[in-house]
């Protein structure tokens, strides 16, 4: 079935937002958890549990933003960019996160 070209752009946009909400949102939640698990000034067990329990709120917020953003590109830039920054900060210092 042919999709009319006038319909194609908005459909691709929605598809990109769905992906941003599902995968981008999970990636952001993952990197957020990793980031807080490394940098919170708490003992290790509390750092990890606090960060992990908060991750679902981050994923929810990301999913809402993926559809609320002005454009799909913007949604991906913000969600993907934040995830990348938090992820780099969390995974680059290899020793820091393992402190007790």
């Amino acid at each position: 079935m042919m999709i009319e070209s006038s319909n194609l752009a908005p459909r691709l946009g929605i598809f990109a937002r769905v992906l941003a909400a599902l995968f981008g949102g999970y990636a952001l939640a993952y990197c957020f958890t990793a980031f807080l698990s490394v940098y919170l000034p708490l003992i290790r067990a509390d750092r990890v549990v606090y960060a992990s329990l908060g991750c679902f709120a981050v994923w929810t917020a990301a999913a809402i933003y993926a559809f609320g953003a002005r454009s799909a590109t913007r949604a991906w830039l913000v969600i993907g960019g934040l995830a990348l920054l938090l992820g780099l900060a969390a995974f680059l210092p290899a020793e820091l996160g393992a402190r007790p």
Binding site: A29, Y30, T33, A34, S37, V48, V49, A98
Partner: peptide, 9 residues
């Protein structure tokens, strides 16, 4: 969410 275990453990 295994991220915390990944970086801290």
């Amino acid at each position: 969410m295994p991220a915390g275990v990944q970086v801290a453990y």
